[in-house]
Design a protein around this nucleic acid. Sequence first.
DNA 1: AGGTATACCTATGTCACCAAGGTATGCCAG
DNA 2: CTGGCATACCTTGGTGACATAGGTATACCT
Lengths: 110, 110
Amino acid sequence: MPGSDLFTGTLDLLILKAVSWGPRHGYAIARWIRETTADVLVAQEGVLYPALHRLAKRGLLDEEWGRTDTGRQAKLYALTRQGRAQLRAEAERWSEYSAAVTRALALSGF
Amino acid sequence: MPGSDLFTGTLDLLILKAVSWGPRHGYAIARWIRETTADVLVAQEGVLYPALHRLAKRGLLDEEWGRTDTGRQAKLYALTRQGRAQLRAEAERWSEYSAAVTRALALSGF
DNA sequence: AGGTATACCTATGTCACCAAGGTATGCCAG
DNA sequence: CTGGCATACCTTGGTGACATAGGTATACCT
């Protein structure tokens, strides 16, 4: 089922944004996305972790084992310089893109 | 290459919108999308035609051979009642979705 | 002791997308 | 009248993100 997507492509963007204030681990990134979008967007774990590895492999995130605030082991992801540049570029693209779609949909219609 | 996507999912929506004023053929739909979004979104033909068939198979579009204004043969696509309902629903979802992403990205950031 | 929340992971299947082809018609310029 | 361009349709093959559905382990709280 196509189901509840309409999601594709923005996951990377939101992940990059989530770590733009400092290193975070995957589970916290998922929580951040869910919370800041009021459950409109939910990153399934089966989608999130592969995405993190993908971004790390592309050099946009640094991956490192560490500890959470509560002392649990967790893999921390940090924005690289390249990742920050990518975030800026993709955010810009999102802005153009979403404005274009919204404009098209707003046309006085049917 | 991931290339210039950030597109996925909204194509169906824009197609439905494109025919919301009356029947149109594929080529004209592609032109409409490109023009109303000022080239921000371009529906490749290799993506557009399968999408049209998909929507027709789902009962959201009616497919019928006819003629263009200039007298050329073309396959005309018309919104079904179900298609119109889908358009409303997806437009609503887009609105929520894009607002959520934009809000998240606007957070005072880094 | 058991349940829940945290925290990570992979495997499989589906499906939209991209690139790159191909066919045919009509029009206009040279 | 012929060559090119715009119109108009199509398919095939590969890639890759996503959904689903599992799995492991630790910590905390009751």
